[in-house]
């Protein structure tokens, strides 16, 4: 190895220090918001003068918060399913197909990821207004699927690329039809790729706010949109409580994914 950690001597402590500062920098806002959500000050004074669960009680007492969270969750699931299915078909064509314009198509699939989100949001909003999809579930699902799709394509393409086509051929020679070979051999073999595609797709929708603001209607609001709206009305620590729950669910999902990967990798 070029740089051996154990041979760094005193430099080791410098390195440790820098790592610590970076971790703190990344984690501080999250820790800050979680602490505030338990603080007793109505004005979110830091450090909190006392501790309370009041904001959580208020959060759960207000059905609008629960509704928003449930909307986010349902939307996330629908986006996940669509994005993984479309992502698999697209990836299969990109990796296994032999046709002109594959490189172009691949780049095209990535555009929602590199385009400024605001541009995507305004464009979709303008189009959805014309076709009557704005403020509807369908519009919301389509919009978020567009954002999630590149993540699914990346994750699934990568695992398909590493999965030798000869294995699929072997299954076909064994007597399986092409579809059967994909269903019984290819899909289970790339399940890690599918899982991370699902996870990233869900998260792409779950914590997305810009497009969601344009897609939302007074009756159809995701959790990030609700937080955003509440922030603009009044600065209550209930928002901190809601945000904390959002962060925690994300963390839980990541942990589940990581441990699933460990199990499947064995």
């Amino acid at each position: 190895m070029l740089l051996n950690y154990n041979q760094l001597g005193r430099l080791k402590y410098v390195l440790l220090g820098i790592t610590g500062v970076i971790c703190l920098f990344l984690l501080l806002p999250v820790i800050f918001i979680i602490l505030l959500s338990f603080g007793s000050s109505q004005w979110m004074i830091f450090p909190p003068p006392g501790w309370t669960l009041r904001w959580y009680v208020e959060l759960f007492a207000d059905p609008r918060w629960f509704e928003a969270a449930f909307t986010s969750f349902k939307l996330g699931l629908m986006v996940t399913v669509l994005s993984v299915i479309l992502g698999f078909f697209a990836s299969y064509a990109l990796i296994r197909g032999r046709f002109a314009g594959r490189g172009f198509l691949r780049a095209l699939f990535m555009t929602p990821m590199v385009m400024p989100v605001v541009v995507v949001a305004v464009a979709l909003y303008a189009m959805f207004l014309r076709v009557g999809l704005s403020g509807t579930w369908l519009g919301f699902v389509i919009a978020h699927t567009i954002l999630a799709f590149p993540f699914a394509v990346i994750a699934i393409s990568n695992s398909l690329e590493r999965f030798d086509k000869a294995i699929e051929d072997a299954a076909i020679l064994c007597g399986a039809s092409h579809l059967e070979a994909i269903w019984r051999i290819t899909l289970p073999s790339i399940r890690l790729g599918l899982l991370s595609a699902a996870l990233f797709s869900f998260l792409a929708s779950w914590d997305e706010v810009v497009v969601a603001i344009f897609m939302a209607s007074p009756t159809l609001q995701t959790l990030p949109v609700r937080i955003w709206g509440a922030l603009r009305q009044d600065l209550t620590p209930v928002i901190a409580a809601a945000s904390s729950l959002l962060v925690i669910l994300t963390l839980v999902l990541m942990t589940i994914a990581a441990s699933l990967q460990k199990v499947l990798n064995r």
């Binding site: 030798d164 000869a166 294995i167 051929d169 072997a170 299954a171 051999i185 289970p188 073999s189 399940r191």
Partner: peptide, 9 residues
């Protein structure tokens, strides 16, 4: 086949 083609799962 030349390459290993056992079904990994």
């Amino acid at each position: 086949f030349q390459r290993y083609t056992l079904f990994p799962h």
